[in-house]
Simulated scan of single mutants.
Amino acid sequence: MSKIGVLALQGAVREHMRSLEECGVEAVAVKRKEELTDLDGLILPGGESTAMRRLIDKYDFMDALKAFAAEGKPMFGTCAGLILLAKELVGYDVSHIGVMDIKVERNSFGRQVDSFEADLTIKDVAESFPAVFIRAPHIVEAGENVEILSKHNGRIVAAREGQYLGCSFHPELIDNHRLTAYFVEMVKEAEAKQFV
């Protein structure tokens, strides 16, 4: 059985854990960097990216997260997690983990009060997916190897590049687990490649 972690420093950890369990995999709340070594994949949840970065630095997670990515293990960033994965951030000189060839703008759909739901078509996932946007970022630019999976009003809100998956919204806040299941399949594909 695949073992997938959720970075449990801040954000919607429990909801992601429940979604993973619904998809039939073992979910692990990752609170120490040593716990990354046993995992097949990792979700970087939504939350507040600045607070998350502070906690990543406080608990000395950054090098371990970059090493996890370098091993070819899949990572899925939702909302703030998408910001952590991006190589470039609008208005900032430095990125965080910086492994996905995308440029992301923070809070591009407005503040907390501007939160909304939208039905999205997500390639290879769903024709109609009820996406919850809360102070959401969006992908301003995507590199040539990045596959755009979904747009909302012309803005890129979900994309994949190899072992990395990112979205602007919160798939863990609804009872539709199809995007989580898509990530679980990515993890299983990556595991299968290791044994070839």
Rank of each mutant, 00 (worst) to 15 (best):
I97F: 09
V125L: 11
G110Y: 06
Q112K: 08
E117Y: 09
E105H: 03
V99G: 10
V125T: 09
V94S: 15
H96T: 02
G110M: 04
K123A: 13
E117D: 15
I102T: 10
G98I: 00
L120K: 12
N107M: 08
I122D: 10
I122A: 12
V104K: 00
K103D: 02
G110V: 06
E127I: 03
E127A: 14
D119H: 06
I97L: 14
F116S: 08
F116P: 05
S115Q: 07
H96F: 15
I97A: 12
D101H: 13
E127L: 05
R106F: 10
L120S: 11
D101I: 04
D124K: 14
D93Q: 13
K103F: 03
D114H: 06
E105S: 13
V104R: 01
V125R: 08
V125D: 03
E105D: 04
I122E: 07
A126D: 02
N107L: 08
M100Y: 06
G98Q: 04
F109N: 07
S115A: 14
V99H: 02
T121P: 01
E117N: 14
E105A: 15
R111T: 12
R111A: 13
D101Q: 09
V125P: 00
G98W: 02
A118E: 13
S115M: 05
Q112L: 10
G98K: 00
N107A: 06
K103Q: 10
F109K: 09
G98H: 03
Q112A: 05
R106A: 07
I122M: 09
V125G: 02
G98N: 09
S128T: 12
E105P: 01
I97E: 07
R111V: 07
V113D: 06
S128L: 01
I102G: 02
D101A: 09
Q112D: 04
E117F: 10
S95F: 00
S115W: 01
G110F: 07
I102F: 05
I97N: 08
I97R: 01
D93W: 01
D124Q: 11
V99T: 14
R111L: 08
Q112H: 13
R106T: 12
R106M: 13
H96Q: 12
G110H: 05
S115I: 01
A126M: 00
A126C: 02
I97Q: 04
I102L: 04
D114K: 05
S108V: 07
F116M: 09
S128G: 00
D114G: 09
E127Y: 02
S95D: 01
L120R: 13
V94C: 06
V99N: 10
D119W: 03
A118Q: 11
L120H: 12
S95L: 08
I97V: 15
M100E: 05
E117R: 08
K103I: 03
G110C: 01
H96D: 12
H96V: 07
I97P: 09
D119R: 05
R106S: 10
D119M: 14
G110T: 04
S115L: 02
H96Y: 15
N107G: 09
M100H: 05
I97K: 01
G110I: 05
I122T: 13
F109W: 10
A126I: 00
V125Y: 06
V99I: 15
A118H: 04
D114A: 12
D101P: 01
T121D: 09
K123R: 14
I97M: 13
S115K: 03
E117K: 11
